[in-house]
Amino acid sequence: MEYIGNGFLKAILLLLHGDAETFSAIYATLKVSFYSMTASLVLGIPSGFLLGYVNFMGKHQVRLVVDTLLSLPTVFIGLMMYAFLSNRGPLGHMGLLFTLPGIAIGQTILALPIVIALSATAVEAMDYKLRTTLISLGANRMQILLSSLWEIRHGIFAAGLTAYGRVMTEVGISMMVGGNIKWHTRTITTAIALETGKGMFATGIALGLVLLLIAFSVNIMVSFFKKKLV
């Protein structure tokens, strides 16, 4: 199994030589995950907060649906997205098939339930005494909302990181919706799938290591933010 050693070596070479194909895939991966994470956080955190905080009719059922969506297979999302975004599909006129924004929408569908469910859980785990404390310090409803969100920031961060992990590593959506088009929609994961299919295992491993390296850098940035947030 000389792939493993070769993979490491190759990963370093790809990065050091500034291999254009690899960097194009890195760029696509970062861009698309940036879109999908922004969308799923902007939509997911408030929804998760509401789901965890507010009591409304059918809350339990909504929660059940969200929790079920946690198990959405990426290939299935990819297939559904294709059906919708295909030129013959209901959203075909938007021209999103084989584009990064198209992949991002699919990844948002993947990440959204994670962000919602985990933020809702974080909200539910919130100490009931927080509300009492905030009111007794003079906070109004808006301030209670903001301060409560701030209070569970670590849980929200965890939700974001978990979602990011899935978004970064999914193949099904990128492959189906993006089409693995070189220089355009080829992400690191679809590139790995391609290289593996070609029997270029070492290159596949190298790309996998590159992905890990990116995840590592992102986590370093996040932990820097986290320190600022404490």
Partner: peptide, 11 residues
């Protein structure tokens, strides 16, 4: 202002 039993400090 109320000082609750086992008071809560914000994080």
């Amino acid at each position: 202002s109320l000082l609750t039993q086992e008071p809560y400090l914000m994080k």
